[in-house]
């Protein structure tokens, strides 16, 4: 037990890094997803095509390859220089963005066409219809899948340890090799991830209930 107690401050420090990266990346990813989803539904073919290419490229490649491409690949061009935290955030955001785009697109398309027709017949513009009528209803339906993707993205941040980010997983590695107590340390790391994800699920359930349609 004292092994865990003495390792805990470092693990918590790692957790802070994990949460910091996760929160920024998930917000960015959601914005990317929203934009890409709207592009996919845009009337212009070229926009549709760009959005689809983006989603296909991300879905068709492993996360770790995307991470290496952004961190090592882009930096090797010597045009920009990304530190590992920035590269990590960008990768998680871009990756989650592609999945969010599909979730949001499906959510929007699941709303009955009559809703759009009613809104347009009142005189709402396309953008107003999206904002006041379609998106609020679509988000309620999307919430469970959004939660799911957020959890996946949170777990994906553990892969950022391979580019040297001192997240929870990286701290676990350091503590495990320093103490030779791999079993206890990795059990503790697992439990910490589990608790965070469990809290996230509770939060999502609360939001879902709060916004349920009467």
């Amino acid at each position: 037990m004292d092994i865990i107690v003495s390792a805990l401050p470092m693990l918590v420090k790692g957790l802070q890094v994990t949460l910091y990266i996760f929160l920024i990346a998930i917000l960015l990813g959601f914005l990317i997803g929203l934009v890409i989803a709207l592009l996919r539904l845009a009337p212009l073919k070229i926009l549709k095509w760009i959005a689809k290419a983006y989603v296909d490229a991300i879905r068709g490649t492993p996360f770790i390859v995307q991470l290496f491409f952004i961190y090592f690949g882009l930096n090797s061009l010597q045009v920009i220089s990304l530190d590992n935290t920035t590269a990590g955030i960008i990768t998680v955001a871009i990756n989650a963005g592609a999945y969010f785009a599909e979730i949001i697109r499906a959510g929007i398309q699941s709303i009955d066409k009559g809703q759009t027709e009613a809104a347009r017949s009142i005189g709402f513009t396309g953008a107003q219809t999206m904002r006041y009528i379609i998106l609020p209803q679509a988000f309620r339906r999307m919430l469970p899948t959004i939660t799911n993707q957020s959890i996946i993205s949170l777990k994906d941040t553990s892969l950022l340890s391979v580019i040297g980010i001192a997240d929870l997983t990286q701290q676990g590695q350091i503590q495990a090799s320093a103490t030779f107590e791999a079993f206890k340390i990795w059990l503790a790391v697992g439990i910490i991830y589990f608790i965070i994800i469990y809290l996230l699920t509770l939060l999502a359930n609360f939001v879902e209930r709060r916004f349920q349609l009467r």
């Binding site: 009955d112 006041y132 349609l213």
Partner: peptide, 27 residues
């Protein structure tokens, strides 16, 4: 031009009052 549909198409996430006031307020 007001329109009334066979399937009503009320906005389910808004109250009756909000359904009616949304257009006047936003437009």
């Amino acid at each position: 031009v007001g329109m009334v549909f066979q399937q009503f198409n009320l906005f389910p996430h808004k109250t009756v009052l909000e359904n009616i006031t949304l257009g006047p307020i936003k437009i």
